Computed example of a mutant assay.
Amino acid sequence: MSRSLSLSARATYRKKGNAAMRHFSYKTQKQVMIVLFLLLPVTLLAAFGIYPAVQLVRLSFTSWNGYLPGKPWVGLDNYREVFQSPELFRIFGHNAVYLLWGIVQNAVGLAFAILLNARLRGRNLYRVILFLPFILNGTAVAFMFKYMYHSQVGSLNALLSTIGFGHVAVSWLGNPDLVNHALGFAGFWRNMGFNMVIYLAALQSIPSDILEAARIDGANRQQAFVRVTLPGIVKIVELNLFLTVIGALEAFELPFLLTGGGPLGASETFVTKTMSTAFKFSDFGLASAMSVILLLLVAAVLVMQRLLMRRWSH
């Protein structure tokens, strides 16, 4: 009995709601529905995105050690300290190594996508094998490479010694000239499959009749790729390159877990330096200024890339 009453109450409430909506025009009803659908995601964005960003900018103009309630206002002093510190900008040279490996990662991912987009026996198995490292836990990948790069019991040096290249065996994570390349290769191994899948989806979105028409017109594979395929996936190339640049600027996980910034700061990145400034040296104001500068740098890279890609696509 109570269940039937509750159902009738719901039906009555629904009818009243529909009757109230009928008093509004179709345009007004559409706007109300859009606002209602956007209310929750916009609220979450404001609470967990916009508000923390505003607080980050505000904190960058203060001096705070993370413990005391007082946050003295220092103005632009934190930004001056960042721009007057050559060490901080020298660290971007370490990030450049990740960018180099990221470009190689995109090129190899595109090559594998082209290869596995063809009629190759067992291509689905190869796709899974190449994509598998991306779904592995980042910490597990870091410890796997830490063992592989170990100077005494590492599998890489053992392999080099087995095949007669024992003289090449070095301390991969202890050599300041090689440590960033070793970390960059680890990132390349883990993320290349993701780029391959994105490029593969882009290649499969190109209509086959366009490629067939190019072949009928006498275009070979190289000409069809340059004239038809590449312009068709230019937006995906732009997206992957943007993600590569952002990943290089925000490199943190691998150097933090594998080297901690060593040896002698040779593998520090801008983000690891920011984290140590905040949590090791308790200077949250300066760390916030560094984070704001990184955000502005990412925005500048995005604008530059958009301009370059727009000019290239035309």
Rank of each mutant, 00 (worst) to 15 (best):
Y67N: 07
K27H: 07
G109F: 13
A47F: 12
F194P: 01
S4R: 04
G109K: 00
A46Y: 09
G102C: 13
V301K: 00
Q29Y: 01
K71F: 03
N95T: 02
L173G: 07
T277R: 00
S151D: 07
R221P: 00
Y199G: 03
P69Q: 11
I114W: 05
L203F: 09
L44F: 10
L302D: 08
S171G: 08
M275N: 13
I236N: 01
L39D: 04
A140M: 14
F188N: 04
S155Q: 07
F48R: 01
N65D: 15
L76E: 07
L286Y: 12
S63A: 14
K30S: 11
V54I: 15
N137H: 06
Q222W: 09
A300N: 05
K280R: 15
R310K: 15
M148L: 13
H314T: 02
F165R: 02
F61K: 01
M1D: 08
F252Q: 11
V271E: 05
A202V: 03
V57L: 09
Q222A: 08
F48L: 03
N180I: 02
H167N: 12
P207V: 13
V237Y: 01
V35L: 13
A53H: 05
L264P: 00
F145M: 07
E212M: 09
L264Y: 12
G166K: 06
T62K: 12
V82Y: 05
I210M: 15
N191R: 04
D283V: 03
R215Y: 01
V234M: 08
A248L: 11
G193H: 07
F37G: 01
A9Q: 09
R90T: 12
V42A: 13
M1G: 11
H181P: 03
L264W: 03
V298E: 08
G247P: 06
R58K: 09
F61Q: 07
T244P: 00
L156V: 15
T229W: 05
A107H: 02
V153F: 08
R227C: 11
L296V: 09
R10W: 15
F165Q: 15
A299S: 11
F145P: 07
Q152G: 06
V292Q: 03
T274L: 15
V82G: 00
I216C: 02
G109C: 05
V74M: 08
L183R: 03
L45C: 08
L294F: 03
L286T: 03
F279D: 04
F284A: 08
S63F: 06
A182K: 00
S2K: 13
G193F: 02
A224H: 09
G184S: 11
A46F: 11
G265P: 02
S267P: 03
S2R: 11
K273V: 08
A182E: 01
Y147P: 00
L307E: 05
K16V: 06
S208G: 00
P255H: 01
T269Y: 06
S171W: 06
A19E: 13
P255M: 12
A111D: 05
V32D: 06
G70C: 00
Q223W: 10
V128W: 02
E87M: 11
G109S: 02
G260A: 10
F89T: 11
G218A: 12
Y149F: 12
V97K: 00
H167G: 05
L136E: 06
I129W: 10
T139H: 01
D217M: 09
A47N: 04
